[in-house]
């Protein structure tokens, strides 16, 4: 049977899909391409060079922003994964949980609000509390909006897991804690891992909240990049963007492969 006589196929869908993937990846390719441009003016090709990568890596402000972002993301990921794991265990596994649906909505609340509203909420909260440490503000705010991203993969994994396994462990006289640590946790580990990756990336990538809170001297990587973009397009910016994309692609690939492995 030729492709055309297959009743499930529609003419034009194939070429449109090809165009779509070009649209999706062309901008990324352009940034990577021009990051190797020796010329200071981005759109004028002046030969191949790695010069802008060495300027980027020796840029102290950039390294500082990366450190701030990593610190905030590490704290936000750790806190949000612990909190999300506890909530998911009760929401999926708990018996006779009152207000199960409402509890789940509350955990996912940051997804229901546009991020700028979340940003305004924490900004006003911190100003009312008189909190001045920029780093602490960022850690608290990031933990809040990372929780649903940590929660959803864990919930999905728990829902797909057989509750009988835990019951069996309990029947064999394992205590609640031992059953959790030796049976449940290893089985939901891929979910915990995806949740942690997602929370980490969401925190590293956040611009809206970090930018609005940006007063206590803690500048994150996206906020620093934004300040560079405002100064104008530059080859160094392309080199920084390319480095970020390489890290993102590695993380995404690892997360994708872990999720695939059942």
């Amino acid at each position: 049977m030729s492709g055309n006589s297959d009743v499930r196929r529609y003419p034009g869908f194939g070429p449109l899909s090809v165009l779509f993937f070009v649209y999706l990846y062309l901008p990324i390719a352009v940034v990577v391409f021009y990051s190797f441009n020796a010329n200071r003016i981005v759109a004028n090709w002046g030969g191949f060079s790695l010069h802008w990568y060495s300027t980027a890596l020796s840029n102290a402000a950039l390294v500082g922003a990366v450190k701030t972002s990593l610190l905030v993301a590490a704290v936000a990921t750790t806190l949000s994964i612990v909190v999300a794991l506890m909530a998911a265990l009760v929401i999926v596994r708990g018996r006779q949980v009152r207000f199960r649906r409402a509890s789940e909505t509350i955990v996912n609340l940051p997804l229901l609000l546009p991020e700028i509203v979340v940003a305004v909420a924490v900004l006003i909260l911190f100003s009312e509390l008189g909190l001045t440490s920029g780093l602490l503000k960022l850690m608290i705010a990031h933990t809040t909006f990372c929780i649903p991203f940590a929660f959803l993969p864990i919930r999905a994994r728990l829902q797909g897991m057989d509750a009988d396994l835990e019951e069996a462990a309990r029947d064999l006289y394992a205590s609640g804690w031992v059953a959790f640590r030796r049976v449940t946790l290893p089985l939901i580990m891929p979910g915990v891992f995806s949740g942690a990756m997602l929370a980490f990336v969401i925190s590293m990538d956040d611009f809206i909240t970090s930018n609005l809170l940006n007063s206590g001297g803690a500048t994150t990587l996206p906020v620093y990049i934004f300040s560079l973009i405002k100064q104008g397009v530059s080859p160094q910016l392309n080199a920084i963007s390319t480095l970020i994309m390489i890290v993102s692609v590695v993380l995404a690939t690892v997360a994708f492969l872990v999720q695939r492995r059942r």
Partner: peptide, 17 residues
């Protein structure tokens, strides 16, 4: 994949284009 790549970098790429 693009979802994992920094939002600000993806939007910035359109300035060049």
């Amino acid at each position: 994949l693009p979802f994992w790549v920094s939002m600000i970098v993806r939007v910035y790429s359109w300035i060049i284009i």
